[in-house]
Design a protein around this nucleic acid. Structure first.
Length: 277
DNA sequence: ACAACCTCCTGGGGGC
DNA sequence: TGCCCCCAGGAGGTTG
């Protein structure tokens, strides 16, 4: 499930394998994987012949700069994969875009569950795109401070965890890292936004930055399908302290707690009742 | 404005 | 062994 660390891992891989290459032949298979009103044929024509420049990221979105002003935006949803493969690699099901590159390899966008999408901004005004117009401050950006986090949560009654998942405020945190950050900050899952103390806000901000940094260094977390650019599982799974660990012992030294699971906004929340109070 | 649902989709796992 | 049902969740939409 690509959250910020997994998307950052993909970004770094594409920066090596894709930047500087020209898209020589492009095939797009499904209109319903495209945003911004694009259709397959028009997108194929628009992309053909463009050269890939820098590759950026905001939250869980990849920002692929192309020749001229064009920018290709990609969201990987739950099961999306954007990778560069050898041209003779076997074709896989659920492949929605194939772009043959000038170096004989090919860019592939594959997404079995189809929660992801692509969008081309021909004029490069990405802030106006469907993909990014509702995406807030990247969780690893320098401007994301404990003070900003406090402003985002002030006066609201929703559970803190639900607010962390809301990409319009801080972008990049999904269910796994929301659970892990809440655990590290020692904040109980039912805590509401407006009732956090300044000390709790500082702890939560630091926990978010640390868990994301560590996960980026480990090339992300693999639960089901995600693999790094090199095609191997991310290394953070074994370092998860609560996510997916219902019924197991808390890993905090000296803690006798057992990890529990509850459902919040239709999502599983894992937590340690002893550490988070 | 905000919060609490619901919906889309497929692969994998559990139960019978 | 096989089949059916349920579950996972990002994000936009709808309802209250």
């Amino acid at each position: 499930m690509p959250e910020l660390p997994e998307v950052e891992t993909v970004r770094r891989h594409l920066a090596c394998a894709l930047s500087g290459r020209t898209l020589e032949r492009v095939r797009v298979r499904r209109n319903d994987m495209l945003k911004g009103g694009w259709r397959c044929r028009a997108l194929e024509q628009e992309l053909t012949g463009l050269r890939v420049g820098e590759i950026g990221r905001r939250g869980k979105n990849l920002i692929i700069e192309l020749s001229g002003t064009a920018v290709l935006l990609a969201h990987l949803g739950m099961t999306g994969r954007l990778c560069v493969a050898d041209a003779d690699a076997p074709a896989e099901e659920h492949t929605h875009l194939i772009a043959d590159l000038c170096d004989g390899r090919r860019l592939i966008f594959r997404d079995p569950r189809r929660f992801g999408h692509l969008e081309l901004c021909a004029d490069g005004r990405v802030d106006d795109s469907e993909t990014l117009r509702n995406v807030g401050l990247d969780a690893m950006a320098g401007e994301f401070t404990a003070r900003r986090l406090g402003e985002m949560l002030a006066g609201r009654t929703a559970p803190v965890k639900a607010a962390l998942l809301d990409q319009r405020r801080v972008a990049g945190i999904g269910n796994i890292y929301a659970c892990e950050a809440m655990f590290r900050a020692g904040i109980p899952p039912e805590a509401r936004c407006g009732e956090l103390s300044d000390e709790q806000l500082r702890r939560l901000h630091r926990a978010i930055r640390r868990v994301l940094s560590e996960a980026i260094a480990a090339e992300g977390t693999t639960i089901a399908s995600y693999v790094t650019g090199a095609g191997v599982p991310g290394g953070f799974r074994e370092r998860l302290r609560v996510y997916g660990r219902e019924g197991e012992r808390c890993r905090t030294r000296g803690c006798a707690g057992v990890i529990e699971r509850i459902v919040q906004s239709n999502r599983s929340t894992f937590y340690c009742p002893a550490c988070q109070r």
